[in-house]
Design a protein around this nucleic acid. Structure first.
Length: 577
RNA sequence: CGGGGUGUACCUCAGCGGUAGAGGGGAAGCUUUGGGAGCUUCCAGCCGCGGGUUCGAAUCCCGCCACCCCGACCA
């Protein structure tokens, strides 16, 4: 393809609003254009990348018998009431929903469990048809509270979602294992470095769940990993062994002390230098919302630890948990924020504790009175220890749960997420098959998502340098950048045309820079767009000599034009191996 | 949803009471031709929207909207 005949427009200047490199580079290179917050046009080059990712995704799903279909983006409320998710998604403000011309509630699909379940109902009716996996690649809509980082978190984005249907839990686990392998193959083929991690199932629900994270410091997700044991989990889900409670001090009666302005553990450390953080118990107030009620929940936690809201929400089984507002804190404690404690909370507040408080005695906690904390408090003596659960957030340096290794926190971009749903949707939506005895049984389902557009962005986040993008060959918009130094030069025109035709005939995709521009500009554009293989046709064209100049690595080599095809084919073969 | 910031040409921005600007970009011409080349001419703007103050508003005031950032939140 000749650049002179394509919509190829690059920008010299950085877009002011791009925070991450992938976003800035894609805008500069004309790959994307923002239309509104989190909503983008994918330009021709970007679309080629997306189609390549899609092709890999399709090939790997088809390889294990996946069947592609296409479901509607526009969906009726009734379907979402059947699964019981309308309320939660509306409460989370993530659902685009509105009334159509006749006053019917509809939404733009953020995910498709409801539609797929409805679709297979009555079609998959016998155990003889199982297992089956269906998938689609389609635009998803989510009204993210804060879209950001270009394609990383959009409100409209391209996703592959797959759904498996099995007879029982064991078979579901087998289907899940197959998909886990499919995912590994997909991301490996895309040429990105990634880490599979244990994950929280969140709003989707179900039992087992793993995420596929592209390793990148700019990723939004924090991951707990252990090099020695291989443990890897999203910090939302991760469990660890925490340092034991410090020894109890000599037992003295609890006493209230003035602590003016001391609202944080750091403030209190300054006030009581002899008291270790581990003997300060914070009490944090949350507002938990269920479909039919709300409650203030107080959670105690050791001073050196943090609460993991996801674990708390899962324990409570509620729709959402957020930090209580100042007003609610005052109502529950009778004090300003920063002085909450377990003693003397309002009766309607549920008191829970993270397991980090277990064994802590003679501790400090909030006094439920502004500028007052209580010291030398003992569980058992001064108050019963609240029920404890694991609500803790893992921290770097924690031991793994088995004690065999140390946890590090790294970051990643979530590009895939797989779930064992179990019978959650098939039960609620009454989607069943007949087993060998002719008895109706709910399907055991799995669901599997890949952010297609996010994967492309993540590849850039991982592959770029000062000058621009560096695409992995399998998902690059073109394989070869053919840079012709002087358009109009007879020898160069002829050789470029010849190489272009030869390479294309051999199945290589060639972007031919035939523009009448300065050399510098062409090289800058080539660096920016990041097509991995590059051939420069310049002054030696008359002697059938060209330069072999890959986007990264390797020295520039002057080679015979007759060797170009071989080089390109070797690179393509190596990339698909 | 809280806090902060920004809206001026297709892009990046300057101008901050007195005739709408620069650079990039695009068009034309001449020169140039291996890492964003030079000169000349031209193109391009309801200064986010609405109200107010003023002889006069891009500029000051009020309201709204959009976008960005931090937080909250999030498959």
């Amino acid at each position: 393809m000749k650049i002179s005949q394509t919509l190829f427009v690059t920008l010299k200047e950085e877009p002011a609003d791009a925070e991450v490199r992938s976003h800035a580079l894609m805008v500069r290179a004309g790959f994307i254009q923002q239309i509104a917050a989190g909503i983008y046009v994918y330009g021709p080059l970007m679309w080629r990348v997306l189609r390549k990712v899609e092709a890999i995704v399709r090939a790997e799903h088809d390889r294990v018998g996946g069947q592609e279909l296409l479901m509607p983006a526009l969906q009726p409320r009734e379907l979402w009431e059947e699964s019981g998710r309308w309320g939660r998604y509306v409460a989370d403000k993530i659902l685009y929903h509105f009334q159509d011309g006749r006053g019917r509630d509809v939404c733009l699909g953020p995910t498709h469990e409801e539609v797929i379940t409805n679709f297979v109902k009555g079609k998959l009716s016998s155990y003889k048809q199982l297992p089956q996996t269906l998938y689609q690649i389609q635009t998803k809509f989510r009204d993210e509270l804060r879209p950001r980082f270009g394609l990383m978190r959009g409100r409209e984005f391209i996703m592959k979602d797959a759904y498996s249907f099995d007879a029982d839990a064991e078979s579901m686990a087998a289907s899940y294992a197959v998909m886990r392998e499919v995912y590994r193959r997909i991301f490996t083929r895309c040429g990105v470095r990634f880490t599979p991690v244990e994950a929280d199932a969140g709003a989707i629900g179900g039992s087992g769940s793993e995420e596929f994270m592209v390793d990148a410091d700019t990723g939004e997700d924090a991951i707990a990993v252990c090099r020695s044991t291989g443990y890897a989990a999203n910090t939302e889900k991760a469990v660890s062994q925490i340092a034991p409670a410090p020894p109890a001090p000599a037992e003295v009666a609890m006493h209230r002390e003035p602590t003016p302005g001391a609202k944080t553990c750091a403030d209190l450390r300054a006030l009581f230098p002899g008291l270790p953080l581990e003997r300060m118990l914070k009490t944090i107030l949350y507002r938990a919302v269920w479909a039919d009620r709300e409650q203030t929940v107080a959670v105690m936690c050791r001073g050196d630890r943090e609460i993991n809201v996801v674990k708390l929400q899962n324990h409570l089984g509620c729709l959402s948990v957020q930090l209580a507002e100042e007003k609610a804190v005052k109502a529950a404690t009778g004090a300003e924020v920063g002085f909450a404690g377990p003693l003397g909370l309002q009766a309607d507040v549920q008191l829970l504790a993270d397991r980090s408080v277990e064994g802590v005695q003679g501790f400090l906690c909030g006094g439920n009175e502004t500028d007052v904390h209580v010291l030398d408090v003992w569980f058992g003596r001064d108050l019963p220890q609240p029920p404890t659960y694991d609500f803790g957030l893992v921290q770097a340096g924690d031991l793994t749960r088995d004690g065999q290794g140390t946890i590090e926190i790294t970051r990643g971009i979530e590009v895939g997420h797989i779930f064992q749903l179990g019978t959650k949707y098939s039960e609620s939506m009454d989607c069943r098959y007949a087993d060998e005895q002719g008895k109706l049984q709910p399907f055991h389902m799995g669901c599997y998502g890949i952010g297609i557009s996010r994967t492309a962005a993540a590849a850039i986040e991982q592959g770029h340098d000062e000058a621009g993008m560096i695409w992995p060959l399998p998902i690059a918009p073109y394989h070869v950048m053919l840079i012709q130094m002087r358009a109009g030069d007879e020898a160069q025109d002829a050789l470029a045309q010849e190489l272009h035709d030869q390479l294309e005939a051999a199945g290589a995709e060639v972007l031919w820079d035939d523009r009448k521009m300065g050399a510098g500009a062409k090289f800058k554009d080539a660096d920016l767009v990041g097509i991995p293989l590059r051939v420069v046709i310049g002054r030696d064209a008359g002697d059938r000599k060209v330069e072999w100049k890959p986007r990264v690595g390797g020295e520039v080599e002057v080679i015979s034009a007759d060797d170009v095809l071989g080089r390109v084919q070797a690179a393509l073969a190596a990339a698909s191996a």
